[in-house]
Simulated scan of single mutants.
Amino acid sequence: MAGNDGRRGALRKPGTKKGPKVGTGGHSRRRLEGKGPTPKAEDRTYHPAYKRKVEREKRQAQEAAIARARAKTSIKIPEGHELISGRNPVAEAVRANVPVERVFVLDNVKDERVEEVIRKASALGAPVLEVTRRDLDVATDGAVHQGVAIDVPAYEYLDVADLIAQSTQQVGEPLLVALDQVTDPHNLGAVLRSTGAFGGDGVIIPERRSASVNATAWKVSAGAAARVPVARATNLVRALEDCKKAGFFIVGLDGGGEAELRNLPLATAPLVVVTGAEGAGLSRLVRETCDQIVSIPISSTVESLNAAVATGIALYEVASVRAAEASQE
């Protein structure tokens, strides 16, 4: 109709055309999708697993640094051999006729024990090599070597039957020590030292879950590892049963023992003293094999004794009872 185009309502204002409007752009959808999978525990800085991961990586880095240092040192120890260091342990090993492959010594060491080691090693045809302090530091993992070390073959263990036979041939009543799941070589070395000091004839250890006679045990034993024989048993319970058949009594050390160690009646008989790991104590089967379980009286403020300390106390008590009886005869 004429004139209609003049109506104000018939005209659309510029920019008012309907169409798509600005939306979320997918923000809501992405919000619903979440933030992705949860990081591993060891990747979360606040989690204990992260701290363990950091410690593990630090330890691995240290081990790698030691390996690199060893690759540069002039001291190379064949697989299966041990490096015994320290003047007393080295001298005792040589006096006990332990086979010596090589002697490593600093050029400025002046000591009678070291001179004795050099003389005996030279007489046996073992080369004596002059090395640097850094070489010995690296080869002994930073242990106190006192300027001398020897390379020896792997320790030769006795059979349990041989140790039993050997101990019964000694003067006086035989005395053996058995260690049940003691995995720290420091403890083994200390037990060897106490066994030698209090007249023990040898130590029995299981093949599995036990420390071996390595460089650490040699060092702590202060030479006793060269004098006190060690037998390795495939089954400790069976080894203790063999000792029983040979006339030994088996006494186990445990905090909940039925009797106290003091004035132990069985001390004067052929005896095997059995010590378990600190905290865990004797395993069930070993405990059941013992003829008697005894305890060492200690203060209530202390939960338990170190395995080596407990063994040393027990051996001292046995030696005291035997000495007292011998004096009355």
Rank of each mutant, 00 (worst) to 15 (best):
L176R: 05
P153R: 02
Q60F: 10
S283N: 12
A319K: 12
P185E: 08
S74I: 12
A319S: 15
E79M: 03
A226E: 07
E116G: 05
G172N: 03
N263F: 12
R59S: 08
L176H: 02
R87F: 11
C290Y: 03
E325N: 13
T38I: 11
R31D: 06
Q60N: 14
V177A: 10
R59F: 06
L11V: 14
T168A: 11
G200I: 02
L240C: 09
R227H: 09
A190H: 01
K58T: 11
R12Y: 13
V22W: 00
L192M: 13
V302G: 04
K35F: 10
E92T: 07
V117D: 05
R238F: 10
A165V: 11
C243D: 00
A139R: 04
R8W: 08
P14Q: 13
S320F: 10
Y46N: 12
A67D: 13
G6A: 12
R59Q: 11
V274G: 08
G281S: 05
T268W: 04
V105W: 01
A161Y: 01
Q170V: 06
P297I: 04
R30Y: 01
T45F: 13
R30N: 09
D43H: 10
G125R: 11
K51P: 00
D162Q: 15
S299F: 03
V191D: 01
V302F: 01
I164T: 06
T24W: 07
G80M: 07
L315T: 01
Y155P: 02
A324H: 09
S85H: 15
H145R: 00
D135M: 03
V230S: 02
E329G: 15
A65I: 09
N4P: 00
T73G: 06
E82P: 07
V237P: 04
G247C: 04
G189K: 01
P229E: 00
T275E: 07
F248D: 03
E79F: 08
E278T: 05
L158K: 13
E173Q: 14
A308V: 08
V272P: 04
I298R: 03
M1G: 14
